[in-house]
Simulated scan of single mutants.
Amino acid sequence: MLSGKTILVLGAQGLIGQAVVQHINEKKGRVIAADVTSDKAASNDVITEACDITSEAEVEHLLNQYPDIDGIVNCAYPRNSQYGTDALEVSSSSFNENVALQLGSCFNLLKYAAKHFKSQQKPLSVVLLSSVYGVKAPDFSIYEGTSMTMPVEYAAVKSGLIHLAKYFAKYINDSNFRVNCLSPGGIENGQPEAFLKAYKSKTLGHGMLSAKDICGSIAFLLSDEANYINGTNLTIDDGLTL
């Protein structure tokens, strides 16, 4: 599906990023795996780069290094140390910082991706990771009995990403520049059993997803099979939003 394509993956060392890199590799794509630090040796199929997505200069420099890229996946998840505080305890400065770190960095990425496309005039597909909580209000009942919550910044950012994708797709107004969102349900990552059980009861039976569960859809959006799918939001949630 991705044979012959070069895909830039940002946040490549995270839970989802690692799964995406592996999946693209399995689909015969060439990967540029970028994260804040780069401590892995490059191979024929995976090139590692250091890039802080919150740095406008670093994002611009990275894209300028690779004029031949065919796709970009943003798995980066920058946040400050107060992230995840109860909504009524979040300071405005912390809220603003997290929105800037996450939504602001995606804006910079899309801006330079659009400039990259206009200068190279080569088809480019960008995939952003939103969330079901960018589509619907949180179900706070599933967090009862745990120390977890659904961060208010998360909802603001993920809903903003969906519209940002639509904005840039329409602004560039070219079928060869595609920007789409993927909105997964919860990704399992060591959450308490009580939460996993409560979450599963809200789905059609599978419950939490693994990072691997969303990689096929990301690969599809990057591929030529998804030509003319533009500015859309694909939800993968085992029925959570039904």
Results as ranks from 00 to 15, higher is better:
V59N: 00
N74Y: 02
E89S: 15
A194W: 02
D238A: 14
A87H: 11
T48I: 04
K27L: 14
K122P: 03
L128C: 08
N227F: 07
A57K: 15
I214D: 04
D237C: 14
I53N: 07
N230P: 03
L109S: 08
I47A: 06
I229S: 10
T6F: 01
E58Q: 15
S94P: 04
G134A: 13
G239T: 08
D68C: 07
K28W: 00
K200A: 12
K136A: 07
G14P: 09
M148W: 12
A33S: 11
Q120Y: 05
C51V: 12
G14C: 13
Q65D: 12
Q191M: 11
N189R: 14
I187G: 04
E193I: 07
I24K: 02
L161V: 11
A194L: 14
H23D: 10
L101I: 07
K28L: 07
L109A: 10
V135I: 14
A219H: 03
E97Q: 15
Q102E: 09
P192W: 04
M1I: 10
E56A: 13
R30P: 00
I229V: 13
Y133T: 02
D237Y: 01
L164P: 06
E188D: 05
A113D: 10
E58L: 09
K28Y: 02
V152G: 12
Q120I: 09
T48Y: 00
S223Y: 04
V157R: 02
Y228A: 12
I214F: 01
I72Y: 02
L129I: 15
G29L: 04
E49D: 01
E188A: 14
S131L: 08
E49W: 03
N44L: 06
V21F: 05
R79S: 09
L8Q: 08
M150T: 10
L10W: 04
M208F: 07
H116V: 00
G231V: 11
L10I: 07
A137T: 14
S175Q: 11
L88E: 14
L62S: 00
E144F: 03
A226V: 05
V99Y: 11
G239N: 09
Y83W: 14
A12G: 07
G185M: 02
Q121R: 15
L161R: 11
G11D: 08
S94K: 03
Y83P: 03
C75N: 12
L240T: 00
S131F: 01
I47V: 10
Q13V: 05
E97S: 15
G160N: 10
S147C: 08
S91D: 12
